[in-house]
Amino acid sequence: MSHLHPQKQALLGPGQHVEPHFTAREIVRDIIIGASDGLTVPFALAAGLSGASVNSSIVLTAGIAEVVAGAISMGLGGYLAAKSEADHYKRELKREQEEIIAVPDTEAAEVAEILAEYGIEPHEYAPVVNALRKNPQAWLDFMMKFELGLEKPNPRRALLSAMTIAISYILGGIVPLLPYMFVPRARDAMFGSVVVTLVALLLFGYAKGHYTGDRPFQSALQTAFIGAIASAAAFSMAKAIHP
């Protein structure tokens, strides 16, 4: 998937080659993180408990408890990660501001070096360097993006990330538990759980591959395979302990 600014598209002209780029937003990445774990972990837990020959109510209770705990844990992890990213950006921003004031010639030389890495000649980048020196805010933005590779984070990013991951985890975690709500015997419900979860993993893997630019069918098979391995391992371990 690729999205180009209209001016860039005009420069390329109609029919010109456009390379695909990963343009999914951060919220899509959070959905992938939450839903992938939400589908896999409760699935493996339910399969493991089913292997211990318990009834569906026990599996359902344990599964719901895990989904709630997992959603809180994953959401908190997402919040702290986004908060840490924002704090890192603020620290680097302050440092760059101080360096532009204290050692402007050094910072200007760094701008020239960055532009030279793109094959721009000194007589070509000199006006750019001078223009940036006259515009401190643009200069600061340039250094943050091209020297440090940092984009300004959304101030609501941490809370939004936590909520997105937690909700995605819950929605994903409900899927493998659905059969246990209707089938009393856990061993029988497990087969229904395997079917619905593998279908969900295939669909989720395909969508993930589509948004990340990977081959969708390969992504679908890989995601389903990982979930199947996790549940089979949990079921086998439970059977070994409680034959």
Rank of each mutant, 00 (worst) to 15 (best):
D87P: 01
H88T: 14
I241K: 10
P14G: 12
A189V: 08
I167C: 01
L148E: 08
A116W: 09
I101L: 15
S56H: 14
P14I: 06
F235C: 07
A126H: 07
H210G: 04
E92Q: 15
E110A: 13
A116M: 11
Y211P: 00
A52Y: 05
L140K: 11
D87M: 06
P14D: 14
Q97A: 13
V196W: 02
F204N: 03
L12K: 12
A81P: 06
V183S: 05
A238Q: 05
G213D: 10
R215E: 09
A62F: 14
S236M: 13
A109Y: 09
G13K: 11
P20H: 06
A102C: 04
T61Q: 09
G78F: 03
N154E: 15
L12P: 05
A62S: 14
D87Q: 13
F217D: 04
H3S: 11
I170L: 01
K94C: 08
H88I: 12
A81H: 07
L201A: 05
M237T: 13
V129F: 09
A46D: 08
I229R: 06
E66I: 00
M237H: 04
E124M: 11
K134L: 14
G34C: 09
K145W: 03
V54Y: 05
I31E: 01
I114Q: 05
V195E: 02
A200N: 10
G51N: 05
G149C: 10
A158W: 02
S50T: 13
P153F: 04
D188K: 02
A24I: 07
M163H: 00
A220H: 09
A35T: 14
D37V: 10
P184N: 11
L150Q: 15
S56R: 11
I226E: 06
V59G: 02
L4I: 08
A24Q: 11
R187I: 11
V195S: 04
I27K: 08
L132S: 03
A166Y: 03
A131G: 04
F217R: 08
V18R: 09
R185I: 10
L221I: 15
Y211Q: 04
L150H: 12
A207M: 12
D188P: 01
A108N: 04
Y118V: 00
S56L: 15
A186L: 07
S231A: 15
A240E: 05
M143R: 09
M1S: 06
V199R: 04
E19D: 14
P184H: 10
L11K: 13
K152S: 08
S57Q: 13
M163W: 03
I31C: 13
P127G: 06
R29W: 07
H123L: 06
A162E: 07
Y79P: 00
I170Q: 00
F217A: 12
L171C: 14
L178F: 12
H21P: 00
Y89M: 06
I58P: 00
P127Q: 08
A186R: 01
Y169A: 00
I27W: 15
A138W: 04
L178G: 05
G38C: 03
K8S: 12
L171P: 02
E19F: 04
L148W: 10
E85R: 14
L202M: 14
G38F: 01
A81S: 15
Y211E: 07
E96Y: 13
K152F: 03
A126P: 01
P6F: 09
L115T: 09
Y180I: 03
I174W: 02
Y169T: 00
H242F: 13
S36Y: 01
E107C: 05
G119Y: 09
N130M: 03
L148F: 11
S236D: 07
L221D: 08
T197V: 05
